[in-house]
């Protein structure tokens, strides 16, 4: 019934830990998107994000991974196709319903997108202040929990333009998670981080996933990170989904471009163009 259903029998990746078959929390159906009359960035992409699993999207730079992610949260409207969140078409809803639905999302932007006018603490507390009736002390408790997890206790009062790129990422991470969202998306959580931080961030993703559950979508260029965190991997190439499957499947894929990408080989269909 659901798309990608032929993968349901196969075991999952993430170091061989099995994942139960679940339905799709997010379904992207034949989404096409072009900007300003140019060639389509996404050209009929269909993929589902399994509920409770971590799905990773990979692909060369500029193939529309961030664009796909913006479609899932409804920041962009597809030219054609549908986005279904828990079975409901995002663009059949009213604006109000979409705002209501977005409270169940968490998104870490590619460069953090912290509010420049607030300090780190207020940035993380912002969703709670807007959407819950918690008292300031309750908010503080929750926020400090997440801030400690990402290790930013010492930078609470700093403004976003006073901290490094990696710290911005971690603050954005805390802000994405603070509402305990059901669908969490990370746009290149590891870009601009050193290898150790990347490793720690991956562990953090896995840990929060274990603790709070939820459907995760991770976009990354980092092969190790993809291997560590993913249950499923999708590969986007030239506006189409070139491959999709469990982590092990995709890493053993016989699609030439996917093999080249995951093994970072210079020879193959991918070039500098």
């Amino acid at each position: 019934m659901s798309i990608n259903s032929d993968y349901s029998q196969q075991g999952a990746g993430r170091g061989g830990v099995g994942v139960e078959e679940t339905s799709n929390a997010v379904e992207i159906v034949e989404v096409t998107k072009a900007f300003g009359g140019g060639p389509p960035v996404l050209d009929g992409v269909s993929v589902g994000l399994r509920e409770g699993a971590i799905t990773t999207m990979m692909g060369p730079s500029g193939t529309g991974k961030s664009v796909l992610l913006k479609h899932v949260v409804g920041l962009l409207e597809p030219d054609d196709g549908e986005i279904r969140i828990f079975g409901d078409d995002l663009w059949e809803m009213t604006e109000e319903q979409r705002f209501e639905l977005r409270k169940r999302f968490g998104l870490l932007f590619q460069d953090g997108a912290l509010f420049g006018s607030m300090n780190i603490y207020d940035n993380v507390a912002f969703p709670l202040r807007k959407h819950t009736r918690m008292s300031e002390s309750e908010i503080r408790e929750v926020v400090m929990g997440y801030i400690q997890e990402v290790g930013l206790e010492h930078a609470l009062d700093r403004a976003p333009n006073e901290i490094s790129g990696g710290m911005k990422k971690r603050a954005g991470f805390a802000r994405a998670l603070v509402m305990k969202p059901e669908i969490v998306m990370f746009d290149e959580p590891d870009s601009g981080l050193d290898p150790v931080r990347t490793r720690l961030l991956c562990e953090l993703i896995l840990k929060t996933h274990q603790e709070h559950g939820g459907t995760y979508l991770v976009i990354t260029h980092n092969i190790d990170a993809a291997q560590t965190v993913s249950d499923y991997i999708g590969v986007l190439y030239q506006g189409k989904l070139a491959d999709y499957g469990t982590t092990d499947d995709v890493f053993n894929s016989d699609v030439p471009m996917v093999g080249q990408l995951l093994r970072a080989e210079p020879d193959g269909p991918l070039g500098m163009e």
Partner: peptide, 12 residues
């Protein structure tokens, strides 16, 4: 800086 998008995503 994507702050407007971030507001949308937070549901504001």
């Amino acid at each position: 800086r994507d702050e407007l998008d971030a507001l949308y995503v937070i549901g504001v």
